[in-house]
Design a protein around this nucleic acid. Sequence first.
DNA 1: CGACGCATTGACAGGGCTCAATTTAAGTGG
DNA 2: CCACTTAAATTGAGCCCTGTCAATGCGTCG
Lengths: 232, 232
Amino acid sequence: MNIDSHFSDTFHRSNLFAGIAIKERDDILSQGHHIFFKSGEILFREDNPALRCYFVLDGLIKLSKLHEQGRRAIIYYINPGELIAAISVFKEKDYPVTAKAVNDAALISWNREIMYKLMLKYPLLVINMLQTTIDSKNKLQTRYLELHAELVKQRIARALLRIMRQSSQKTTEGILITFKLSRQELADYTGTTLYTVSRTLSVWGKNGWVKSGRERIIITNPHALVSFAEKG
Amino acid sequence: MNIDSHFSDTFHRSNLFAGIAIKERDDILSQGHHIFFKSGEILFREDNPALRCYFVLDGLIKLSKLHEQGRRAIIYYINPGELIAAISVFKEKDYPVTAKAVNDAALISWNREIMYKLMLKYPLLVINMLQTTIDSKNKLQTRYLELHAELVKQRIARALLRIMRQSSQKTTEGILITFKLSRQELADYTGTTLYTVSRTLSVWGKNGWVKSGRERIIITNPHALVSFAEKG
DNA sequence: CGACGCATTGACAGGGCTCAATTTAAGTGG
DNA sequence: CCACTTAAATTGAGCCCTGTCAATGCGTCG
């Protein structure tokens, strides 16, 4: 399998391949398959579990989890350079999570047998996988604590800042979040409702901290947001 | 290093060593150090990060995280057979978590250099570490969703059931949780306050679902609790 | 231009937190 | 063994944050 040179950088710079020689990386790469998902498409769902693991080359992937009682929690936004559904190497079922492409996305996928062989062949690959898994677990622990300890507004501030760091660009108006982010999504990410998010953004709009429209958020005063996120 | 035969079983049956030959396990074991912690003692804290990773032979270890604003969240209870602070292999600092022995505990510890060498020497060890890390991450994801989606009482019910499955024994009165569990601890575990926990247990006591005293909980009607935990 | 989906805003209620006052139980020392 | 100390647990009162529901506004796209 060849890789588009545009994505090559993302692949080779990923922490996942730190310390692994280029020709070994190419071996790993050559055993995967390219897949593309359009914005809004679903990679796998609670009732249709992941059978392969995916490396994100481009785009943003949203991992969320649906509760029986109807609510949804966004667990992570996955950036290019990260791996998802590594669990599929070990378990066929039992990964009750939805993965959805937020932007058009390019990925590489490996099925479980191939990935397992690669893991045995390249111990450093597994070590890197372990490290990135621990890192993302720690991030979730932090968010778990915040969900427990902080009021909604503070969590929304933190969420905006996290998303800003992950996926934004400077514009003349401020820092624009570069994907469609509705009130509902932000609510799912912070553990609240779209109404509370709307009210909060409304106030912050009047403060001059953000400018927001339909599925579109610009942060005009990041400094104020940071201070609010930290002090509550 | 020798291992007490009483703990030998826990060591060798752990998922961590699945597929690894006995003499290899003994090699791994021989490079660690025995450590004991009395009930209530702290293994490491937010301001005194873990420098080694630990394998739990006996006892129960509580991992919690303190929020700047004062609240504490219990992230996991760690049973015998599990590994903690694997992150210390990769990072010296930056594991802002407190680990405390809930019961008297026996552990094996390895420092980072030794553990890293072992990981390179035994690829299957890393694969197993990856698998258990993914598993515990998934559990946290589930609890994150619950914290977002469920009311306090439902979360308390789930927490009691989880703890019961982890660490309990049958008595004539019912299923006794076999470690000191205060209202405050249960609150930290479920994301609420000790007052709400107290009120809830008080009601369930009148219902005949539980019997509770000072740092002591007996579940007298697990069936009712399960049904409540699932339906809310 | 019409329709659909997202966003806004108000009114209202209630779950659960806070604070304070007791009560209960365990542990300690004489 | 009992008085004393200390920490945990209970319970009530009050209130506020935030979820719920409903009505309306508005931007986007076919």
